[in-house]
Simulated scan of single mutants.
Amino acid sequence: MIALVLLGILALVVGGCVCVVWAERGGPRWARAVAAVTLGAGELLRSFGKNRDQGLGQSADDGD
């Protein structure tokens, strides 16, 4: 059961990444919408990870 859930999440992530690439190349409106949601979710997860690292007293330096 857990494998099916993880497989579903993986399919959503891969599909989102495909839509990001397709939208960059001028894809349809729905692909641009999915790409915007995918990029927004990525930013949200990135900021959540940085806040979590700072809360644990670790460095939030991303290597830039």
Rank of each mutant, 00 (worst) to 15 (best):
M1S: 09
M1T: 14
M1N: 11
I2E: 15
I2S: 14
I2Q: 14
I2P: 02
A3R: 12
A3E: 02
A3W: 00
L4M: 12
L4E: 11
V5R: 12
L6E: 14
L6W: 11
L7S: 14
L7G: 10
I9K: 07
L10D: 13
L10S: 13
A11L: 14
A11R: 09
A11Q: 13
L12E: 15
L12A: 15
L12S: 14
L12C: 15
V13A: 14
V13T: 06
V13Q: 04
V13M: 03
V13I: 06
V13P: 01
V14Q: 03
V14C: 12
V14H: 07
V14K: 04
V14S: 08
G16T: 00
G16A: 02
G16L: 01
G16R: 03
V18S: 08
C19K: 09
V20Q: 03
V20I: 04
V21W: 04
V21T: 12
W22V: 15
W22M: 11
W22L: 15
A23K: 05
A23L: 00
E24R: 15
E24K: 14
E24D: 09
R25F: 03
R25D: 02
R25I: 10
G26Q: 11
G26N: 04
G27P: 06
G27V: 09
P28T: 15
R29I: 14
W30N: 04
W30E: 00
W30R: 03
W30Q: 04
W30M: 02
W30Y: 00
A31V: 06
A31M: 02
A31G: 11
R32P: 09
R32N: 13
R32M: 10
A33V: 05
V34G: 08
A35Q: 11
A35C: 07
V37Y: 02
V37E: 12
V37R: 07
V37S: 10
T38I: 10
L39P: 00
L39Y: 01
G40L: 01
A41G: 14
A41Q: 13
E43C: 12
E43F: 12
L44T: 05
R46H: 01
R46K: 06
S47N: 13
S47A: 10
F48Q: 08
F48N: 10
F48Y: 09
G49W: 01
G49F: 00
G49R: 01
K50Y: 06
N51P: 05
N51M: 12
R52A: 08
D53F: 02
D53P: 04
D53V: 06
D53S: 09
Q54E: 10
Q54C: 12
G55H: 00
G55N: 00
G55Q: 10
G55D: 05
L56G: 00
G57S: 02
Q58H: 06
S59H: 07
S59L: 07
A60T: 05
D61H: 06
G63L: 06
G63F: 01
D64C: 02
